[in-house]
């Protein structure tokens, strides 16, 4: 049963992944990619990694919906009313893709994977987390803070209107001068 489900999802993930580059509309490409990610998430669920699998689905839906907005905003031919192609530098990208696939596939077949007769732990997600970063937790926490600071800094740099536009050059305006007033009149 799990075997059948795995192969169904694996094939569906590859097919929808190929569909990303075959369809002629940005909306369809985005949601084909989302379908591919969801099929991949089901294979993660098959490993008893319930939390990670469901989280992948949750994050990918939010991420792809936001991405659809930006893709349609910035890419050519958003509505797919004219023929468009998702592929650029066709030969080069094909070579890179096939090469990566061959390297990874031979890796899967050649690496002597460790086996174990012991039963699966009660909480594989916990085990995986400990194995991945048990000894590197401090690094991960610092890295998380650095990433978050980078995001805040990028938004501050990219924002069209800063506090000087809103509160005046001396920041002495009582109420901000906003083109669209917000909800709490601040």
């Amino acid at each position: 049963m799990a075997q059948v489900l795995f192969w169904l999802c694996a094939i569906a993930a590859v097919v929808t992944g190929i569909a990303v580059f075959r369809v002629d509309s940005m909306a369809r490409a985005t949601f084909a990619l989302l379908a591919s990610f969801i099929f991949t998430a089901v294979t993660v669920l098959l490993l008893d990694l319930a939390y990670l699998g469901v989280l992948v689905i949750l994050m990918m839906i939010m991420e792809m919906v936001i991405m659809a907005v930006f893709m349609i905003m910035f890419m050519m031919n958003p509505a797919g009313l004219m023929p468009m192609t998702m592929v650029h530098n066709q030969k080069g990208s094909l070579a890179i893709a096939v090469g990566t696939f061959v390297v990874l596939a031979t890796g899967v077949l050649l690496v002597p994977w460790p086996g174990s007769d012991r039963a699966r732990p009660d909480d594989p997600t916990m085990q995986l987390g400990e194995a991945l970063m048990g000894s590197k937790m401090l690094v991960m926490i610092v890295l998380g803070l650095a990433l978050f600071a980078t995001m805040v800094a990028t938004v501050v740099l990219a924002t069209h209107r800063g506090r000087y536009d809103r509160y005046g050059d001396r920041l002495d305006r009582k109420r901000p001068d906003d083109p669209v007033p917000g909800g709490i009149g601040r």
Partner: peptide, 25 residues
């Protein structure tokens, strides 16, 4: 009785994001 029931519930709600946008589009 899913071990991550709360996350599952949250995930199904988020489907509405994609669904409503798709219907609008």
């Amino acid at each position: 009785d899913f071990s991550v029931g709360v996350v599952w519930f949250n995930t199904m709600e988020v489907v509405a994001w994609a669904a409503v946008w798709l219907v609008g589009w």
